[in-house]
Design a protein around this nucleic acid. Sequence first.
DNA 1: ATGCCTGCAAAGCTTTTGCAGATGC
DNA 2: GCATCTGCAAAAGCTTTGCAGGCAT
Lengths: 135, 135
Amino acid sequence: METQDLRKAGLKVTLPRVRILEILEEKHGTHMTAEDVYKELLKHNDDIGLATVYRVLTQFEAAGIVSKHNFEGGQAVFELDRGEHHDHMVCVETGKVIEFVDPEIEKRQHEIAARHGYELEEHSLVLYVRPKRKK
Amino acid sequence: METQDLRKAGLKVTLPRVRILEILEEKHGTHMTAEDVYKELLKHNDDIGLATVYRVLTQFEAAGIVSKHNFEGGQAVFELDRGEHHDHMVCVETGKVIEFVDPEIEKRQHEIAARHGYELEEHSLVLYVRPKRKK
DNA sequence: ATGCCTGCAAAGCTTTTGCAGATGC
DNA sequence: GCATCTGCAAAAGCTTTGCAGGCAT
């Protein structure tokens, strides 16, 4: 019931916001740029401006509904945030994105921050990988 | 002997390149935007254009002399790359950047890539931290 | 001398913003 | 009805590029 998510975030339930949320759900597991979302909306014949897509995605991020990543290359990408944290592995040849979690790495990050007198607030880990070539 | 580094990279030893390299060495350990480097050049009364700073930093990156990071917020930052790999911890309150290396995390990254049939080419790990508050 | 560099200004791209009209509650 | 929201177009910010002259070798 996605309209709940919107209300909870203090956002009015408007057509653009609902549509964008639908797109993100439909494409769950992928990482979309604002432009990708916009093009998808056009396909669905929704008359929503690119500026609105940016505005809505930014609000969603603030509300914790989506998370935003800055991989390499100008455009930021967004994905639905279902609470399950994970990191990313990006194939430099195909652009494919794989998600993963490693408890040990997570743990050590906290330890490292603590060792320097800090609390870990957030982190960003991206592995840039290449298909293993067969010998 | 920095002129060697330039020659080795197939770059002519020109005044702008030498000056920029000097600035980076002088500020070693910090992370500068192209604009920061530019402003520093102005302070030293060097008449070098911002476009050149971008061009030179890009060439340096290609040559492995500097590395470029995309922390949060539009501007990319550069730092001298002395071969010693490390990751970064950014304080969200003060903007302070701390460098660190954790062999265990490095090791697990390779394992994770391998487990998915990839070779680790590169990676980017940034911890966003906040000073631990005293109780 | 020649080909690689540089400065300047203009263009390019992604993202943000101002404003008048539209829409949700 | 009123505040919030949206579309459009224009602006903004970072970075790149075209071009004519300048410099290293």
